[in-house]
Simulated assay, not measured.
Amino acid sequence: MKIVVAHNRYREAQPSGENTIVDAEIAQLTAAGVEVLPFLRSSDEIPSMPRSAKALLPISPIYAPRAQRELGRLLDEHRPDVLHLHNPYPLLSPWVVRTAHRYGVPVVQTVHNYRQVCSSGLYFRDGAICQDCRGRALGVPAIVHRCYRGSRAQSALMATTLAAHRGTWRSVDRFIALTTSIAEHLRDYGIPEQRIVVKPNAIPDPGVPVPLGTGFLFLGRLSPEKGLDLLLEAWRRHPDGSLGPLRVAGDGELRPLVEEAAAQRADVTFLGPLDRDGVHAALVASAVVLATSTWHDVLPTVIIEALAAGRPVLGTALGGIPFLVGADTAEPAGWVVPPNPAALADALPAAVAEAASRASAARTRYERTFHPDVVTRRLLDIYADTARTAESDRRSAQ
């Protein structure tokens, strides 16, 4: 099988879980014997572009001519079975879907965010969930509120891009929804049920879990939508030291909030940004991992890392978090609560008391749902079915 993986990498200065997942998926597919043809661009290329190329950047989300020419040559030369698209912005453009179809190549897209509808991709604005652009032909609220990169002009361009490519997205042969929540988003957007499959991401198996450590770990971007302020407000409702340690790892605009909490309480430790070894050590030291997002977080990789390490997760009942934790299964790998301080504060002592009894369920959920062997087999089945369906449709049209 021959697959083109198309992805516009996010800037390295802003670490992206999506970049990491795409790299891991390419490695997993290659290990499974798939011939992967990467068609990758990076936003880090933009500063070094010639002036003529930079002049075209404002229209590239709608139509990126250079990317279409280069993709056309790749498709013509290699004749792949499927093109697998991840992020198209800004250097690829959703037009790659049309280019692939022009060469008779079906398209699978993994949906990592809500950008079919929302200019920021988050359904989150001014510290709260926002879905003002749902159902609109043009996302005027995104323009008014400068939702894309804090710029009214760039927000207008992105809103126009989303409107212009509504038909493009609806022509995608198969959508990979990372969770049931994303599947619901796609149905709401008008994608037929038969073109949506749920397949989460995978992370490498870290091996047999070691016994639980103590306390809680928050690992992620220190930004408002990740719910750090919610967590700290809930934490302050308990006496210092009564829940064990709270370790916070990461970086971002809310870093001063964590540093202040660590200065005020002996049971709060700020670990700062961590490398892979540091993340592993922090997981090993902890008993429960926290995922306290206040937006519809699509698929926080930290939850899969926690499950792989046999650490149960306490999260908010938003986005993909309930799916990841298996909240509706017979043996959930943690707990989900409403995104408010009182509910989270009530859940913290229960998580301490029940962590050991949920550890085995956490590891089992990883092995059955998020292990690379399981996920890669699922992805190969999706490619094969998409290619078969596209070929059958072509024959029917002749």
Results as ranks from 00 to 15, higher is better:
A384I: 00
V325H: 03
P88G: 08
D346P: 05
H280L: 15
T168M: 09
L37E: 03
P65D: 06
S242I: 09
R265I: 10
V288C: 11
V289T: 13
G227D: 13
L157P: 02
A249E: 02
S171E: 15
P50Y: 07
D277K: 05
A285K: 03
T369S: 14
W169Y: 14
D277I: 04
L157R: 13
P256Y: 10
E12L: 12
V198P: 02
L162E: 11
A55L: 13
R363N: 02
S93P: 09
A100T: 10
D81N: 08
R149F: 05
L74E: 07
A234C: 04
I26P: 04
H112D: 02
D393K: 00
D205Y: 10
A317Y: 04
P339G: 10
G33W: 06
F124W: 07
H84G: 12
R11L: 14
F39S: 11
P339H: 11
L138M: 11
C133W: 00
E18C: 06
A308G: 09
P349G: 07
P372F: 10
F218T: 08
V105R: 00
P338T: 13
A342E: 15
R170W: 07
G127D: 06
T99H: 11
L246T: 04
L348M: 15
Q264M: 05
E35L: 11
R41N: 07
A13L: 02
A342V: 13
P94K: 13
V248H: 01
E45R: 08
L380H: 01
D251R: 12
G72D: 01
R98G: 08
R394H: 10
V284R: 12
R395H: 03
A163P: 06
P47Y: 06
L307E: 00
D23V: 04
P211S: 07
D297Q: 04
D277M: 02
G167R: 15
P312N: 11
P106L: 03
A309L: 03
A156W: 13
R98V: 06
D76F: 01
V111C: 09
R79E: 14
S43D: 13
R368K: 05
P141V: 01
T376I: 11
A333L: 04
D240K: 14
S48N: 14
T376R: 05
S52C: 09
H7V: 05
T292V: 15
R66L: 14
S360N: 02
D277C: 05
D393C: 00
V284S: 07
